[in-house]
Design a protein around this nucleic acid. Structure first.
Lengths: 154, 154
DNA sequence: GGCTATAGTTCTAAAATAGAACTGTCAAAC
DNA sequence: GTTTGACAGTTCTATTTTAGAACTATAGCC
């Protein structure tokens, strides 16, 4: 497998995996959604090596998920802020958090609780069909080849 | 970071990442949801090395995401089938697919289209609040430390 | 007996990651 | 005006993972 061209595969999962499909990237994104923005803050809360953190941040900026924004001119210092493309990864992160809550919990209870500001309640994220609003289950979904697949396969 | 104890961290994302947080595992799960079940089938559709495929399948079985079920007695042959715990990863996979559709598309159009059998329409997955049913956005969510975090932190 | 199918295991080379030390800029403290 | 400390990285070597190919094992079929 050539990971360097994975983002061009005719498969949206492959393309997403090419960008966020490794441990550190997902953990960095968690921190982003927890409002962490600075190099030192990522490093100390994740205990990631500085080398890898630097690499991963560059990659996230390259793919347009984070923006590198100066917050100090002298010395030049930057922070990393989620773009809209990055914010749109929220369902991915929340789906993983919810699966962890459901299947990887221990006797201590949930690590984090999520409150929905607009309704004021603690909630779980639920994935529904955009058309009928029903909860989605794998067995109720039928997959068709779309135009992008047909063109690629021939 | 000690990846071998990541599944015990007081963070549901870490725990999920410990299990499915690498490229190959996510791609293998995609195949599972496309009804692939056998070693050779995974290997030829993913072009993964046999060694890694073997490792990843063992790990997914160990974590209860796949079951190794015999389908032939002589010679002994097994296939790998999603458990309920595995099926529950559907929102994670679909969230990634949808993000890829939205942000990593090219001029060829979507690789795959999803049809919801119960309503008969082509759909996108949408993440909503379990309490009020509204679409979730990162900025409308407030995070609290839960019991599992408080106990771990002290 | 030889060929094929399936599900692996074993081996070496290449790539990625860990861990620690080092660089450079500037502010504030002494 | 020299030292200290904060911040955001880069560079280096050692270890771990992954890639790629070859090999093993069981059994059916010709």
């Amino acid at each position: 497998m050539k990971w360097d061209t994975l983002d061009e595969e005719p498969c949206s999962l492959s393309r997403t995996v090419a960008v966020v499909g490794d441990r550190w990237t997902l953990l960095i994104l968690r921190e982003c959604f927890l409002r962490v923005r600075r190099f030192e803050a990522f490093q100390s809360s994740l205990q990631i090596t500085r080398h890898l953190l630097s690499e991963r941040l560059k990659k996230l900026v390259r793919f347009g998920i984070l923006r590198r924004v100066p917050y100090s001119e002298a010395p030049k210092r930057y922070e990393y802020i989620l773009t809209q493309k990055g914010l749109d990864l929220y369902p991915v992160i929340m789906a993983m958090v919810h699966w962890g809550d459901t299947h990887m919990g221990d006797e201590r209870g949930r690590p984090l609780l999520h409150e929905h500001k607009s309704c004021g309640k603690l909630f779980d994220p639920v994935m529904v069909c955009s058309e009928c609003g029903d909860v989605l289950h794998a067995k109720q979904v039928h997959v068709h080849a779309g135009p992008g697949r047909k063109e690629a396969v021939g």
